[in-house]
Design a binder for these strands. Structure first.
Lengths: 256, 256
DNA sequence: CAGTGGTCTAGACCACACT
DNA sequence: GTGTGGTCTAGACCACTGA
């Protein structure tokens, strides 16, 4: 008997079946499940292609195609000679993967952030809709100020699913230190890896309180960036409203 | 004699050579050249994988990998049973590929645009830098107003390389009709296909003239979207400054 | 039907990292 | 050297399109 018997989910059949999908996609789904279940931790080495091929009872080329897709989606990282690793926000390369703000002069700047508040509250309608929970359900609310070279540039209001982040406190955020990426912190403390996000950007006039925090004039134009971030299985876990000053920075985007 | 002799550029050698790149990448480069040279027009059917494999003297799998990459970069479009086609802004699917503005309510809206002016002028420093030409070199400047459901939403100021678009006139733009995508028009009239763009987004207060065009209050917050668009061979051909109202719309972005 | 892309396999060999 | 991913091949079969 081979290990193949432990993988009964794979369907080798013609596309006539309505629930058909190619082998490599089924493999990918199984691997996504493994990631979502925390079987392979962020940053960890996953089994080699040959080993996975044996485990799933398919050829190496088929496993390879599954990994190709996941690697192009930034879920896995291949390193020739070493192996394939689970992507992580702890990697220097993918550290601030979702932050699109850049200094106008292009020079790298020192980023650090300060957490202003953290507490559980009831979700309002908009937050509930974004996180796919019921209005009134508890969410963890965090306010943070992000500075580039000691100048305040972004004010963030975040709302996190309480079922996951319920234990988060201001002390934990402060203790973690101001230089670490928040998503790296979430990975390490809560085992939640953000894999994808959507942003909606608008121009707004700065409210007095926000203007003060960002040290700009009241009614100064700001970018309002609303972000919804997802973990595995398309599960939204964070909803964030950020106010960005664009006096010395800009939101950069590549259109393919 | 086979056709292989007509493709002397392919280097089959070990990576020890400093100028080495994998076969499929060399194939890709050759195909990119063909696209850049206008050998294969936007929307056209390219030769089958088997044919290309024979022409380049490699296996079908190698050609396939080259096409895979180009297709994931939106340069080619595969259609099972039919063949592989050159991507085009004329395709209904890739029509407004670079426009990230969406109505807040998510309902599709009728887009149409009006060209306000068009003429040749000398490039200022910023425009010249963006287009990689000399300050003072001629550029074609176009001003356009884009409406969603008859409401003005975007005011665009575009600067185009005169060597390509020198013959562009307001009459041509008006004649083309207000509903066609501009990039489709550029493809058909000038044979220039935009394949990639970068955008830098900032929040600004509306100047009086812009406010009037967009029917918003003076000093109303607007998105300022600067776009640089490239054709093949990483050649920048358009530099654009757009003012977007975000009263009923937002700039949408997916972060992978 | 013939022709196209889509999937899957099996095997060879190369390049890289560690030991 | 051993084990990893990276490239390339040749061939089989499937699925879709259109004549």
């Amino acid at each position: 008997m081979s290990d193949t018997s432990s993988v009964p989910h794979i369907i080798r059949q013609a596309a006539a079946s309505p629930t058909f999908s190619p082998l490599y996609r089924q493999i990918k789904t199984l691997m996504m499940d493994a990631l979502g279940a925390g079987e392979w931790e962020p940053g960890a080495l996953i089994p080699s292609e040959a080993e996975l091929a044996a485990r799933f009872g398919v050829s190496q080329g088929t496993v390879r195609k599954a990994i190709d897709e996941m690697s192009s989606e930034n879920l896995l990282v291949r390193r020739q000679g070493k192996g394939t690793f689970v992507a992580s926000h702890g990697d220097p390369h993918t550290r601030y993967r979702f932050l699109r703000l850049r200094p106008d002069d292009g020079l790298p700047q020192q980023k650090h952030s300060r957490s202003l508040s953290c507490g559980v509250q009831a979700a309002d309608a908009a937050t509930a809709a974004a996180l796919v929970i019921q209005p009134g359900d508890p969410v963890v609310a965090v306010e943070r100020l992000l500075c580039f070279d000691a100048r305040p540039v972004v004010f963030d209001q975040m709302f996190l699913r309480a079922e996951i982040f319920g234990e988060l406190t201001l002390a934990m955020l402060e203790q973690e230190g101001p230089v670490t990426s928040l998503y790296r912190f979430f990975e390490q403390c809560f085992g939640v890896h953000m894999i994808r996000a959507e942003e909606r950007v608008r121009a707004v006039a700065a409210a007095a309180s926000v203007a003060k925090l960002l040290e700009v004039a009241p009614d100064a134009p700001l970018l309002l960036v609303e972000r919804r971030a997802y973990t595995y299985a398309e599960r939204p876990v964070e909803w964030r409203r950020g106010f960005y000053t664009t006096e010395r920075h800009h939101y950069y985007n590549e259109l393919g």
